[in-house]
Protein backbone atom coordinates (compact mmCIF):
# COMPACT_ATOMS: atom_id res chain seq x y z
CA UNK A 1 0.00 0.00 0.00
CA UNK A 2 2.76 2.37 1.00
CA UNK A 3 4.62 1.71 -2.24
CA UNK A 4 1.66 2.49 -4.49
CA UNK A 5 0.78 5.62 -2.56
CA UNK A 6 4.39 6.73 -2.50
CA UNK A 7 4.62 6.45 -6.31
CA UNK A 8 1.43 8.41 -6.68
CA UNK A 9 2.77 11.16 -4.43
CA UNK A 10 6.03 11.35 -6.30
CA UNK A 11 4.07 12.07 -9.48
CA UNK A 12 2.56 15.17 -7.89
CA UNK A 13 4.27 18.28 -9.28
CA UNK A 14 6.63 19.79 -6.75
CA UNK A 15 6.30 16.91 -4.30
CA UNK A 16 9.32 16.50 -2.06
CA UNK A 17 10.08 13.74 0.39
CA UNK A 18 8.99 14.47 3.98
CA UNK A 19 12.37 13.34 5.29
CA UNK A 20 14.12 15.99 3.19
CA UNK A 21 11.68 18.73 4.19
CA UNK A 22 11.84 17.75 7.86
CA UNK A 23 15.62 18.02 7.76
CA UNK A 24 15.40 21.58 6.44
CA UNK A 25 12.57 22.90 8.61
CA UNK A 26 11.44 22.81 12.26
CA UNK A 27 8.87 20.13 11.34
CA UNK A 28 9.16 16.43 12.12
CA UNK A 29 8.52 13.89 9.36
CA UNK A 30 5.07 13.21 10.85
CA UNK A 31 4.25 16.91 10.81
CA UNK A 32 5.34 17.22 7.17
CA UNK A 33 3.06 14.28 6.35
CA UNK A 34 0.21 16.02 8.17
CA UNK A 35 0.95 19.22 6.25
CA UNK A 36 0.68 17.17 3.07
CA UNK A 37 -2.91 16.30 4.05
CA UNK A 38 -3.66 19.99 4.46
CA UNK A 39 -1.81 20.82 1.23
CA UNK A 40 -3.88 18.29 -0.72
CA UNK A 41 -7.08 19.92 0.47
CA UNK A 42 -5.91 23.43 -0.33
CA UNK A 43 -4.33 22.58 -3.68
CA UNK A 44 -7.31 20.70 -5.03
CA UNK A 45 -9.99 23.13 -3.87
CA UNK A 46 -10.56 24.71 -7.29
CA UNK A 47 -8.12 23.15 -9.76
CA UNK A 48 -7.25 19.53 -8.99
CA UNK A 49 -3.59 19.75 -9.95
CA UNK A 50 -1.82 19.44 -6.59
CA UNK A 51 -0.61 23.05 -6.70
CA UNK A 52 -1.98 25.98 -4.72
CA UNK A 53 -3.15 28.71 -7.08
CA UNK A 54 -3.69 32.26 -5.86
CA UNK A 55 -7.47 31.81 -5.92
CA UNK A 56 -7.16 28.67 -3.77
CA UNK A 57 -5.00 30.56 -1.30
CA UNK A 58 -7.59 33.34 -1.13
CA UNK A 59 -10.37 30.81 -0.76
CA UNK A 60 -8.58 29.17 2.18
CA UNK A 61 -7.93 32.49 3.89
CA UNK A 62 -11.20 34.27 3.24
CA UNK A 63 -13.60 31.56 2.04
CA UNK A 64 -13.83 33.66 -1.08
CA UNK A 65 -11.71 32.97 -4.12
CA UNK A 66 -12.11 36.47 -5.51
CA UNK A 67 -11.27 38.49 -2.44
CA UNK A 68 -7.94 40.16 -3.16
CA UNK A 69 -5.93 41.50 -0.26
CA UNK A 70 -2.56 43.23 -0.45
CA UNK A 71 -1.04 41.26 2.44
CA UNK A 72 -2.43 37.89 1.37
CA UNK A 73 -1.02 38.61 -2.10
CA UNK A 74 2.38 39.39 -0.64
CA UNK A 75 2.37 36.21 1.45
CA UNK A 76 1.38 34.17 -1.61
CA UNK A 77 4.23 35.77 -3.59
CA UNK A 78 6.73 34.97 -0.85
CA UNK A 79 5.54 31.36 -0.61
CA UNK A 80 5.81 31.08 -4.40
CA UNK A 81 9.60 30.99 -4.26
CA UNK A 82 9.97 29.90 -7.91
CA UNK A 83 7.70 32.75 -8.97
CA UNK A 84 5.73 30.50 -11.29
CA UNK A 85 2.30 31.54 -10.04
CA UNK A 86 1.63 28.51 -7.84
CA UNK A 87 2.76 27.19 -4.47
CA UNK A 88 4.27 23.71 -4.61
CA UNK A 89 4.35 21.35 -1.65
CA UNK A 90 8.04 21.98 -0.86
CA UNK A 91 7.53 25.73 -1.02
CA UNK A 92 4.49 25.42 1.23
CA UNK A 93 6.34 23.46 3.92
CA UNK A 94 9.52 25.54 3.84
CA UNK A 95 7.58 28.81 4.02
CA UNK A 96 5.30 27.61 6.79
CA UNK A 97 8.41 26.49 8.64
CA UNK A 98 9.18 30.15 9.27
CA UNK A 99 5.83 30.41 11.08
CA UNK A 100 6.60 27.44 13.35
CA UNK A 101 6.86 28.38 17.05
CA UNK A 102 10.35 26.87 17.11
CA UNK A 103 11.63 28.66 13.99
CA UNK A 104 14.49 31.14 14.55
CA UNK A 105 13.28 34.65 15.37
CA UNK A 106 15.78 36.01 12.84
CA UNK A 107 13.94 34.10 10.09
CA UNK A 108 10.61 35.58 11.20
CA UNK A 109 12.06 39.09 11.23
CA UNK A 110 13.55 38.60 7.76
CA UNK A 111 10.30 37.18 6.36
CA UNK A 112 8.27 40.10 7.76
CA UNK A 113 10.77 42.52 6.19
CA UNK A 114 10.31 40.92 2.78
CA UNK A 115 6.57 41.06 3.27
CA UNK A 116 6.64 44.81 3.79
CA UNK A 117 9.22 45.40 1.06
CA UNK A 118 6.41 45.55 -1.49
CA UNK A 119 8.53 46.45 -4.49
CA UNK A 120 11.40 44.17 -3.44
CA UNK A 121 14.03 46.89 -3.44
CA UNK A 122 15.75 45.60 -0.32
CA UNK A 123 14.29 48.45 1.72
CA UNK A 124 10.93 49.36 3.17
CA UNK A 125 10.24 52.76 1.74
CA UNK A 126 7.99 55.45 3.13
CA UNK A 127 5.60 55.22 0.19
CA UNK A 128 5.30 51.46 0.68
CA UNK A 129 4.38 51.91 4.32
CA UNK A 130 1.80 54.52 3.40
CA UNK A 131 0.39 52.24 0.70
CA UNK A 132 0.03 49.43 3.25
CA UNK A 133 -1.68 51.67 5.79
CA UNK A 134 -4.11 52.87 3.11
CA UNK A 135 -4.77 49.27 2.02
CA UNK A 136 -5.53 48.29 5.59
CA UNK A 137 -7.86 51.23 6.04
CA UNK A 138 -9.67 50.19 2.87
CA UNK A 139 -9.87 46.59 4.09
CA UNK A 140 -11.16 47.52 7.53
CA UNK A 141 -13.53 50.30 6.45
CA UNK A 142 -11.84 52.60 8.95
CA UNK A 143 -11.76 56.22 7.94
CA UNK A 144 -8.68 58.32 8.69
CA UNK A 145 -7.87 61.64 7.12
CA UNK A 146 -4.86 62.02 4.82
CA UNK A 147 -3.19 64.15 7.51
CA UNK A 148 -3.59 61.46 10.15
CA UNK A 149 -2.18 58.80 7.82
CA UNK A 150 0.79 61.02 7.02
CA UNK A 151 1.38 61.58 10.74
CA UNK A 152 1.25 57.86 11.53
CA UNK A 153 3.68 57.06 8.72
CA UNK A 154 6.00 59.94 9.69
CA UNK A 155 6.09 58.91 13.35
CA UNK A 156 6.75 55.29 12.52
CA UNK A 157 9.46 56.21 10.08
CA UNK A 158 10.92 58.66 12.55
CA UNK A 159 11.56 55.83 14.95
CA UNK A 160 12.44 53.04 12.52
CA UNK A 161 14.57 54.93 10.00
CA UNK A 162 17.42 55.67 12.40
CA UNK A 163 19.79 56.76 9.60
CA UNK A 164 17.17 59.18 8.32
CA UNK A 165 17.66 58.29 4.67
CA UNK A 166 13.97 57.80 3.96
CA UNK A 167 14.01 54.02 3.89
CA UNK A 168 14.20 51.19 6.40
CA UNK A 169 16.98 48.67 5.79
CA UNK A 170 17.09 45.13 7.24
CA UNK A 171 19.31 46.19 10.18
CA UNK A 172 17.04 49.10 11.09
CA UNK A 173 14.07 46.75 10.81
CA UNK A 174 15.69 44.22 13.13
CA UNK A 175 16.34 46.95 15.70
CA UNK A 176 12.80 48.26 15.36
CA UNK A 177 11.30 44.79 15.87
CA UNK A 178 13.44 44.28 18.97
CA UNK A 179 11.76 47.37 20.43
CA UNK A 180 8.31 46.24 19.25
CA UNK A 181 8.28 42.42 19.38
CA UNK A 182 4.53 42.32 18.79
CA UNK A 183 5.34 43.21 15.16
CA UNK A 184 6.21 39.59 14.46
CA UNK A 185 3.38 38.06 16.49
CA UNK A 186 1.66 37.01 13.26
CA UNK A 187 4.84 35.25 12.19
CA UNK A 188 4.10 32.45 14.65
CA UNK A 189 1.24 30.02 14.12
CA UNK A 190 0.54 27.93 17.24
CA UNK A 191 -1.47 25.55 15.00
CA UNK A 192 1.78 24.27 13.56
CA UNK A 193 2.70 22.67 16.89
CA UNK A 194 -0.44 20.59 16.77
CA UNK A 195 -0.61 19.92 13.07
CA UNK A 196 -0.71 16.14 13.52
CA UNK A 197 -3.66 16.54 15.88
CA UNK A 198 -5.43 18.77 13.39
CA UNK A 199 -5.05 16.13 10.70
CA UNK A 200 -5.29 12.83 12.61
CA UNK A 201 -6.25 10.93 9.44
CA UNK A 202 -2.59 10.96 8.59
CA UNK A 203 -1.58 9.10 11.75
CA UNK A 204 -3.20 5.83 10.72
CA UNK A 205 -2.05 6.18 7.12
CA UNK A 206 1.56 7.12 7.69
CA UNK A 207 3.81 5.35 5.26
CA UNK A 208 7.19 6.92 5.72
CA UNK A 209 8.68 3.96 7.58
CA UNK A 210 7.22 1.29 5.35
CA UNK A 211 8.12 2.94 2.05
CA UNK A 212 11.64 3.56 3.28
Amino acid sequence: MGCVSSKRRKQEPGYEEPTVLAAETPFTVSEVEALHELFKKLSNAIIADGLIHREEFQLALFRNRNRRNLFADRIFDLFDVKRNGVIEFGEFVRSLGVFHPNAPVADKIAFAFRLYDLRQTGFIEREELKEMVLALLHESDLALSEDVVETIVDKTFGEADTQGDGKIDPEEWKEFVSKHPSLIKNMTLPYLKDITLAFPSFVVRSEVDESD
Partner: peptide, 25 residues
Protein backbone atom coordinates in the same frame (compact mmCIF):
# COMPACT_ATOMS: atom_id res chain seq x y z
CA UNK B 1 0.79 55.98 23.12
CA UNK B 2 2.98 55.88 20.03
CA UNK B 3 0.88 54.88 17.05
CA UNK B 4 2.97 52.36 15.18
CA UNK B 5 1.91 51.86 11.56
CA UNK B 6 3.45 48.40 11.37
CA UNK B 7 1.64 47.27 14.52
CA UNK B 8 -1.55 48.66 13.07
CA UNK B 9 -1.05 46.66 9.88
CA UNK B 10 0.13 43.40 11.43
CA UNK B 11 -2.57 43.30 14.07
CA UNK B 12 -5.45 44.26 11.82
CA UNK B 13 -4.93 42.79 8.40
CA UNK B 14 -6.88 39.60 7.78
CA UNK B 15 -4.50 38.76 4.95
CA UNK B 16 -1.70 38.56 7.47
CA UNK B 17 -3.41 35.93 9.58
CA UNK B 18 -2.59 32.50 8.20
CA UNK B 19 -4.43 30.66 10.97
CA UNK B 20 -7.47 30.45 8.69
CA UNK B 21 -5.49 28.04 6.52
CA UNK B 22 -5.87 25.49 9.31
CA UNK B 23 -9.44 26.16 10.29
CA UNK B 24 -12.47 24.28 8.99
CA UNK B 25 -10.42 22.10 6.70
Amino acid sequence: KFFNAFEFISSMSSGFDLSSLFENK
